[in-house]
Nucleic acid binder design. Structure first.
Length: 839
RNA sequence: GCCGAAGUGGCGGAAUGGUAGACGCGGCGGUCUCAAAAACCGUUGGGAGUUAAAUCCCGUGUCGGUUCGAAUCCGACCUUCGGCACCA
């Protein structure tokens, strides 16, 4: 007995769902064949991290993707909709430290469990193509691809200040730092100087800005564009030869070269390599203290925009070569080493930060671009708009936009600098000081330097007997058997690289591996990739906008340039589904607010949960989880179950009535059209609403009589076909129960499917609609007077404009509202309304 | 601060220039039942009006505008969410 208030199932969902899941697997219904003659459709959903349990958010995301993939399949495509696991990552390693379970076992146990859960959803994944990234057969190709990128100069090692998460005890890519906090654990990130491996994604910055070859949401394109942050400007040298250093100039970057005559100081980033050399002996103590303090700050402290701009004088000077003026050099922490050249020319009159800085330290403020109606006096704040050049020697009087060009040309002619482009995006830092990731296949030899592991020696396998201690040291670095190695070049003792790769490397090409997961001699079979890629439809959460989606695009472009691929973009279409929240918060294990689907599946079955989730609202919207409406979906499933199994022969006792048949057909064809359009656009909520309306109208048609069994059975068949992508089990069971055991309906005979496969509802084609049959022959015309509804009249759909207007004007209800008024105009919208404008 | 999206009944939402509230939940009334649950039928934005109806008015965050007609387009503002943010 169900609990009070819970809808009782009229059918045994457990029995039919397990029956069909087993039979589909046995018949290989969802096995994807490369030799299928139908046009291909690659529909991919972002693979999950194997955290251990599928929560309701996974169901929401995966159900929508599965519905759409099934829909395409029934539209006649050979659909590849694969699934796998993003199996490397910190959780597994933390479990090892905390509970002594080896990351491999922890991960594989989770995968085993999650795979079963995914199967219980009734998805069409072809498990023969599953990918598990922590398997050496997968990650060896991470290593191989790394070596190709290294050979091409796209992977390099550099000593650089990097983001460090003290809690995860590893470095992070810029993309993984959110508001100065670690993306994973919200710990404030600090800076460290370390030798690290990078991928040269910046080489592709301009191409990554081009979204014209894809059909992506504008929002996504904007996010990537903002992230890349292209800005055009000029690099200009300031003369520091008076200090007698090896470096004779100090290079700065500016987007406002028109303000060059307004430079009254120059500021170095605290980490700038010339800080020490330029600092005068008497200033050393103060500068050292300042630099030290800056380095100790976290990013959030340092990058806080409302913090006062601080700095110290170095005692050194440089010369602005345009006017020969000597200006002081300072160190200030508002200057970032990682952007531009790490040196800023201070133009306080025309940059608000410089203005605040100059005001605080009493540095001169000289206007060189005049604001409109400027009286020549001091400014209250920086003027950052365009204007006329003043105090700018021979450029005086020019509009600053022209000044910009002329001054840049002058500087280039003099050899003091050149026009250039800067990007906010940095190279992708892929080193991680952790165990559970792909070992970077490099060896450090004292004699030969950094030497790649020969391709024949791949994979570099993670040692199984590593020790997981809560010390923060990488288990690989402590593992002597792993570290000590012969140099492949000179044969002498050498040290293995102990950093592992960011897991985003794995996901940057997994969509290639799905096409040929068993290929052993290369990362993917070029033929298979050519057949399936690029991905036609990618779905997943928007949180990957500037990480995974940018990295994968970079990979494809780099592999293309290596001759491994012949297309430019990995994902042609992209759709971001929304997130299911729990009490307005993102669901996560650490918050402890994860909603498990298990008990709902137990009570209502997978079909009902899938449909309920899809019915909540538009798929892109997500929303707060509530189970308050789930009974309604269960109730509807029961109604479908009952309705599809009625014995239609009793209808034959009544005479066939053409009007009733026509109305039923109209309902059938309108529904096919609506559901098809909605599914196409991921509007599963309105597709379901259309199906619900359809079952309501089928009920009415049954009550009304006048249709015969043939009409009814045809209408029910259409219902099952349209329902199949959403509720695959019940649709299949009812398909069988309504006598559809025949072979081959709607499938081309050349496909190599056996009779079990062909008899499945999921092997049928979606029905087509007939516009003539879907058309109304009577329409309701709304009659308005001055825009307010006053009457509704039924007219034939073929009504002419004159007839419609005449009928509207003849309405009694209208008469009362136009009495004593002049009719100024009558507006007619065909098939919809007549609006009488009366004054 | 800049850029973008959103704001509609008690609730999830539908309608993207033409009947606001499709579809569903919940509520209310009824049928069945000893009773309940389930199921089924009816009803359900607010107000005025009437024995009952007809009918009328108000209503899509706020205020204005464009239009014969605005949830929808435009302007300003408020709120929420997302992105970027000392990027020179």
């Amino acid at each position: 007995m169900a609990a009070a208030g819970t809808t009782e199932q009229r059918y045994d969902h457990k029995e039919i769902e397990s029956k069909w899941q087993e039979r589909w697997a046995r018949d290989g219904l969802y096995r994807v064949r490369d030799d299928d003659p139908r046009p291909k459709w690659y529909e991919l959903h972002m693979y999950p991290y194997p955290s251990g349990d599928l929560h309701i958010g996974h169901w929401y995301a995966m159900s929508g993707a599965d519905v759409h993939a099934r829909f395409r399949r029934m539209q006649g495509y050979n659909v590849l909709h694969p699934m796998g696991f993003d199996a490397f990552g910190l959780n597994a390693e933390n479990a090892a430290i905390q509970r002594g379970i080896h990351p491999y076992r922890w991960t594989m146990d989770n995968i085993k469990h999650m795979r079963e859960q995914l199967k219980s959803m009734g998805t069409i994944y072809d498990w023969d193509r599953e990918i598990i990234t922590c398997d050496p057969s997968y990650y060896r190709w991470n290593q191989w691809l790394f070596l190709q990128l290294y050979k091409a100069g796209l992977a390099y090692r550099a000593h650089a200040p990097v983001n460090w998460c003290p809690s995860c005890v590893t470095v992070l890519a810029n993309e993984q730092v959110i508001d100065g906090l670690c993306e994973r654990c919200d710990t404030p990130v600090t800076q460290r100087d370390m030798n690290q491996w990078f991928f040269r994604i910046t080489r592709y910055a301009d191409e990554l800005l081009d979204h014209s070859k894809m059909d992506w949401p504008d929002r996504l394109n904007t996010m990537q564009t903002n992230w890349i942050g292209r800005s055009e400007g000029v690099e200009i040298d300031f003369d520091i030869s008076e200090h007698g250093l090896k470096e004779k100039t100090l290079r700065t970057f500016t987007t406002r070269i028109d303000t060059i005559y307004g430079v009254t100081f120059v500021v170095l980033a605290p980490e700038h390599p010339l800080v020490d050399a330029l600092t005068a002996p008497e200033r050393k103590a103060e500068v050292d203290a300042y630099v030290e303090a800056a380095r100790r700050q976290t990013d959030i402290q340092r990058l806080s925009t409302d913090k006062e701009k601080t700095g110290v004088l170095t005692g050194a000077f440089c010369v602005n070569q345009l006017n020969g003026e000597r200006v002081p050099i300072l160190v200030g922490d508002y200057v970032l080493l990682t952007y531009g050249t790490g040196v800023v020319m201070g133009v306080p009159a025309h940059d608000q930060r410089d203005f605040e800085f100059a005001t605080r330290y009493g540095l001169p403020i000289r206007v060189v671009v005049a604001p409109p109606d400027w009286d020549g006096g001091a400014l209250a704040e920086a003027y950052t708009e365009e204007g006329a050049q003043v105090n700018s020697a021979e450029f005086d009087g020019l509009p600053s936009a022209d000044g910009m060009q002329r001054i840049a040309a002058h500087i280039e002619a003099q050899g003091w600098g050149h026009r250039t482009v800067n990007y906010r995006m940095r190279d992708w830092l892929i080193s991680r000081q952790r165990y559970w990731g792909t070992p970077i296949p490099m060896i450090h030899c004292e004699r030969c330097g950094t030497v790649p592991v020969p391709e024949d020696d791949l994979p570099v396998v993670l040692p199984e007997d590593a020790e997981f201690l809560p010390t923060g040291e990488s288990p690989l670095a402590l593992h002597q058997g792993f570290v000590n190695v012969e140099c492949p070049q000179c044969g002498q003792g050498a040290k293995r690289e102990t950093d592992t790769m960011d897991t985003f490397v794995d996901s940057s090409w997994y969509f290639l591996r799905y096409t040929s997961p068993d290929t052993h001699d290369r990362p993917f079979d070029p033929e298979a990739v050519r057949r399936w890629n690029p991905v036609d439809q990618y779905t997943g959460g928007v949180e990957h906008a500037v990480m995974h989606l940018l990295y994968a695009r970079f990979f494809v472009k780099a592999l293309r340039d290596l001759g491994l691929l012949d297309f430019d973009e990995p994902f042609v279409r992209l759709f971001n589904q929304g997130t299911i929240l729990a009490n307005h918060q993102k669901m996560s294990k650490s918050r402890g607010n994860v909603i498990a689907p298990d008990s709902y599946v137990e009570t209502f079955g997978a079909d009902t949960i899938r449909c309920y989730l899809m019915f909540l609202g538009p798929w892109e919207q997500g929303g707060d989880w509530s189970d308050s409406g789930i009974n309604g979906m269960a109730r509807w499933m029961n109604r479908v179950w009952e309705l599809a199994q009625r014995d239609a022969r009793q209808l034959d006792d009544f005479p066939r009535d053409e009007a009733a048949v026509r109305d039923l057909k109209r309902s059938v064809h309108k529904t096919i059209r609506r559901v098809t359009d909605d599914m196409e656009r991921f509007k599963f909520n309105t597709a379901l609403a259309a199906l619900m309306e359809y079952t309501n109208s089928l009920n009415q048609a049954w009550e009304r009589k006048g249709i015969v069994s043939e009409d009814w059975n045809d209408a029910v068949e259409k219902l099952l076909l349209l329902l199949a992508p959403l509720a695959p089990h019940i649709a299949e069971e009812l398909w069988e129960r309504t006598g559809h055991r025949r072979v081959g309906a709607g499938l081309k005979s050349s496909t190599k499917l056996d009779r079990h496969q062909l008899s499945s509802v999921h092997s049928q084609s979606l029905p087509d609609w007939d516009a003539a049959l879907a058309a109304d022959d009577v329409v309701t015309l709304v009659v308005q007077v001055n825009g307010r509804v006053r009457d509704k009249i039924e007219v034939p759909a073929s009504v002419s404009e004159d007839e419609a207007k005449a009928t509207a004007l003849a309405s009694q209800r209208v008469a009362a509202h136009i009495e004593g008024k002049q009719i100024a105009r009558v507006i007619y919208v065909p098939g919809r309304l007549v609006n009488i404008v009366a004054r």
